[in-house]
Design a protein around this nucleic acid. Sequence first.
DNA 1: CTGAAAGCGCTTACAG
DNA 2: CTGAAAGCGCTTACAG
Lengths: 348, 348
Amino acid sequence: MTLADVAHQAGVSSSTASLVLSGRGRELRISTAVHDRVREAAETLGYRRNTISVGLRKGLTNTIGFVSDTVASSQLAGGMIRGALDAARESGYMLFMSETGGGPVQERRAIEAMLDHRVDGLILASMFTRQHGALAVELETLPVVLLNSLPPDGGGPAAIVPDEQAAGRAAAEQLLAAGHRDIHLIGAGPTLEDAPAASEAGRLRLAGILEALTEAGVPPASGYPYRSWNPAHGWEAVHDLLERGKVPEALLCFNDRLAFGAYQALQEAGLRIPEDTSVISFDDAPLAGWLRPTLTTFAIPHRAMGTMAVEMLVGALRAEGAHPLGAQVHRVRMPLRERGSVAVRSPA
Amino acid sequence: MTLADVAHQAGVSSSTASLVLSGRGRELRISTAVHDRVREAAETLGYRRNTISVGLRKGLTNTIGFVSDTVASSQLAGGMIRGALDAARESGYMLFMSETGGGPVQERRAIEAMLDHRVDGLILASMFTRQHGALAVELETLPVVLLNSLPPDGGGPAAIVPDEQAAGRAAAEQLLAAGHRDIHLIGAGPTLEDAPAASEAGRLRLAGILEALTEAGVPPASGYPYRSWNPAHGWEAVHDLLERGKVPEALLCFNDRLAFGAYQALQEAGLRIPEDTSVISFDDAPLAGWLRPTLTTFAIPHRAMGTMAVEMLVGALRAEGAHPLGAQVHRVRMPLRERGSVAVRSPA
DNA sequence: CTGAAAGCGCTTACAG
DNA sequence: CTGAAAGCGCTTACAG
């Protein structure tokens, strides 16, 4: 079924059929009769426009490349894909997916493959918030947005990241407002220097936390920096804390997996959450809703970020055709999921 | 940079340049000199073949569509995407991703979009193993594979699913071999009728379990059927079990989330795993490795399944060009991850 | 208001 | 051994 078939069936030229079917018929004052005949022919023949030929002819493929390190397979940030996919569908774009595993060489190859397929725009997504390496020059010719990573030094494309620092502040403020003064940091701290080097999120969360605590005149009671943030680390930190003989009033965990480990250590010691110890955290992984009690945590707005990435791209494409996007960094608010792990402490 | 540019630079026609660059030069005995000149021109000009024009000309796009209900965003089966992406890269294919949310109308639309973009083959993936609904007729013209779902009644495309029944058998046998005779089923059972209607996995796991237990003359001590399998259900079941005053010897949980809930109830009651109660499960979610003790569970081989789907498609495409795949159902073995939650019971 | 022609960038018979 | 021509299925000036 080609356009020629439809045109023939409707008894018009393929130019006319093309005009009608692409919606430019009215504008060019094609008669209603012809209009209807073409529409009907297309309908009865079950015609569908061949996107490939359109792509070749127009130089635009209605296609966006989504290159990530391990977003799909790591099962932690699927929301970004969901948001991107939804927004793409809304705007009539298709998404090419690709995973690099994180290596710059693989990233380069993945991007080349995307370019070979003539994507109209490109999303470069990261599992964890980090600073992105230098980008290939070819990328200066089409709109690119960094999703969950920061532009390389010396400028770069637009970027979308969670507002980690604000969330850090908010987490500390949440505990302070609940009356806690004995606040332990699990994952980083106690000073600004004790942040995992590779983690932008860690650095910013810590900065926000320390700002709020300092302003309140309540320095952290302790800090347990770790390079990676898994339950075993959370368990270890809290186990150590308890061995020193003190029951912490409040634990500020740098992510939900650490909080899970903290739960385990607390519960093994017979302590109750939140009556004995309050816990607050970041990420809002599915886990957070499964814990007992459910975990109060600041969500990474993955889905909103994914949506935003596609919308920015589509906006740029519709604006003046495939021009590079400015180098703004968009920081998206991390919403608080208030659940059951923070207790209000009655003033002593 | 087009082929014409390369040809011009090398001083040959674009036919010749095409032949050389597509690797058919040797075969057609093009002179080494010309060969080298074309290669060099392509190199220095940074020529990359325009996949879109090739697609139009050949009618083949080197593209596979991956339509799922919620595989990427549910964050439970990311391995399927990973496997598919890896295999596609290996074979020089690109993957279009799309998520339908599960509705048949949305699925239909997603498939049409894929067809409009002239994918060479199609993967229809499900989050949970289920029977797939009827497929549109258009799909009879290109290779399709169902990933993690079974063909509709009356035949259909090839399908890849985990071998749930064998895993059910193996799980029961594992507990029996460890000397357990007091085995409680959490999630389905105690009889074959007590399976969640919508879950193919539940039905088959249960069938396998009951086969093995019946053969051993050890009927399940109890069964707790649930329609959905979340930690809260696991907790509830085990809480109920304990309220009846008995400490179960072994819990056979229908997935890791249920097992997590069982852990919570057991630990809140001061029971030790696996000393007091053994626990075994299915899925091998990331959670399984985070629990204390780590959870013994049968993994869903998501990644292998994803790889297999692409390889089958590519095989069919390379064989005799885009013919439909036979209706075999491939059942992939679910490997046991033997960890710390099952104890050997000394004979009383 | 509608049609004929050119062209997007390739590949593939077909000549020579 | 190499080149000229046609054609994949569209869209877009350009005529009329």
